[in-house]
Every structure is written in C-alpha cells, then in structure tokens.
C-alpha cells in the first residue's frame, strides 16, 4: 500500500526506453564502430587497429571517388525534387478523395516492395530497355525508338525514383492525414484564392511531413548501389556501388568504413540543413500529452 506509484516521467521512460536502447545498441553503436574502423587499416581481410588517416587520404585524393560521390549526391537531389513535385498532388488526392479506401491506396504504393529490387530493376529493363516493351511498341507503329532511356544517368534517375517515390507520397499523405482541411475553408472565406490558401496554409503546415519525405527519398537514393549497376552505362557507377565493393570483392573494410562515414556525414549534413527549416511551432505539430 505504501508502495510509491510511478509518476508520468517514470511511466514514460518505462515505455520509451526499451526501444530507444534497442536503436542505440543496434544502430548507433555499429555506426560508431565503423567510425573507429575508418581510422584502422585492413590487411588480407582483417582489420588492424593501427590508427591512421590513410583511408581518408585515399578517399579525398582519388578523383574517381569524389566524382562518384558528387554523382550520387546530384542524383539524390534530382530524385528527391522530382519525387516531391510528383508526390504532392498524388498524396493530396489520396488524403482528400481517397475516402474509406485511403489505407488501401497507400498500401498499393508499398506493395511493389514485395517484389525484390533485382527483379524489379530487371522489369524496368524489360519495359524501358532499348528493345523493351515501350520501344517495341513504338517501332511496331513505325515510330522512332526512344534512345535516351537506357544506360544513361536519366535511366538511373528514373529507376531510383521508381524505387523511392512511394516513401515521399506516404510521408506527405501521413502529414495531410493530420491536417485540418477546414482551415482552407477559413482561408477561402477570408478571400484567399485556392493557390494562395495552399501557399499560406497547406504548405507550411505540412512542411515537416514534406521534409521527412525528402529525407526518406534522399538518404537511400544517395546510397543506391543496385540501380546504377543495371540501368546505368559504363560511366554511371555510384558511390554506394564502390562502397559495396570494399566489402565484397576487394575486402578493404577500413577504406569501406571510411566511405561509409563520408556517406553518413554528407547525409547527416543534408538532414541537418533541412531540419533547420522546420519550425515545430509553426508546422502545427501538436503531439500531445495530458
């Protein structure tokens, strides 16, 4: 009876901590460990704790690595923006007009992930390749086949967008789910035209969801290694691809770790810059608590 009851703070920690510890142990510690390994050296497939900066010297000193990095970065930016522009009207449509089928419409965007990435990329080749369905169709009607789609940066871009655009739609949709559409009525009654209401109300109130969407697309696009290998030409190798190589064929784990750290650093920087544009008070975040 005299037992002291757990206060809200205690109950909060009891429920939140297991998951937080899980993430810290199995995500942050591994990341920390590759940061450490990036200052070591590999010799015949083993890591040797011999502290040095050689990996970073190699990384920054080799033009091709920097080219790969820049290429992946540009690709990720382009893909994120393309997804953003396309995803907004789509997410808005589902949130506003999806009615009781909204969940199904969103799951239908996730369902392609049931098919493995390799098969899907093969499928893209089959549809858009030089002798794929589209070009066969064009030639069948006596038209010029489209040259540019396959084995170019554009092809990689389309492939990467294909993979990650569902993330963007979902993020914006989830944000719109908590958006009070009646606010738009208020704006209109006060004389705002639809586009004006969008810019003044909808866009800022869903900016956080949009940022999360951009991050969700940017991060994997930047690290993507499969699509360039299949859809890119000889000059399309991505940073993720060479990073993967260090852990496969060449077995240079220390250098690979350094590459991982660099990738992580660039991604974190981008996220940080994006996050600075989010003002929690003004994004209408009202996560709760009594």
């Amino acid at each position: 009876m005299a037992r002291r009851r757990l206060g809200p703070e205690g109950r909060f920690l009891l429920m939140a901590l297991p998951g937080a510890i899980f993430v810290v142990v199995f995500l942050l510690l591994p990341i920390l460990s590759i940061i450490v390994f990036s200052f070591w050296r590999t010799e015949s497939y083993t890591l040797i704790p011999d502290w040095n900066l050689d990996n970073y010297a190699t990384l920054f000193g080799t033009t091709t690595y920097m080219t790969f990095l820049l290429r992946s970065f540009t690709m990720a930016v382009a893909v994120s923006l393309a997804s953003l522009v396309y995803a907004w009207p789509v997410a808005y449509f589902i949130a506003k007009h999806g009615d009781r089928y909204r969940l199904l419409l969103i799951l239908a965007l996730a369902a392609p992930f049931f098919t493995g990435i390799i098969l899907r990329v093969t499928g893209i080749q089959g549809v858009m390749g030089p002798v794929g369905v589209i070009n066969l169709g064009l030639m069948n009607y006596g038209l010029q086949p489209i040259e540019f789609i396959m084995y170019t940066q554009t092809a990689v871009g389309i492939g990467v967008t294909y993979l990650f655009i569902p993330f963007m739609v979902t993020a914006v949709y989830l944000s719109l789910l908590n958006f009070d559409f009646e606010l738009l009525e208020v704006a209109k009654i006060n004389g705002a035209k639809p586009w004006r209401a969008f810019i003044e109300i909808t866009w800022p109130l869903n900016w956080m969801g949009t940022v999360i969407g951009l991050v969700l697309v940017f991060i994997p696009s930047m690290a993507e290694s499969i699509t360039p290998r299949f859809l890119g030409g000889p000059n399309a190798a991505s940073f993720g691809q060479v990073l993967g190589l260090q852990f496969g064929e060449t077995g240079t784990w220390a250098l690979g770790s350094a590459m991982g750290v660099l990738l992580f650093a660039v991604s974190s920087l981008v996220i940080l810059l994006m996050w600075r544009t989010v003002n929690l008070q003004r994004s209408g975040f009202t996560g709760g608590g009594s």
Binding site: P8, L27, S33, I219, G289, S290
Partner: peptide, 28 residues
Amino acid sequence: KYRSRWRGLIAVIYLCPLFVADLLVGIS
C-alpha cells in the same frame, strides 16, 4: 501520452534509423 522533458530526445532516437541508408546499416 506523456509530457516528459525527454520526449524530444527519445523521438530523435526513434527516427535516427530513417537517416541511415540500408547499405550503411548493413555494413556497420
């Protein structure tokens, strides 16, 4: 449910994995 002063930190920890690419999770 709860207003805790740790809320922000905990939320960031839970969201962390979003900011790390599959490939990095894999190799690390």
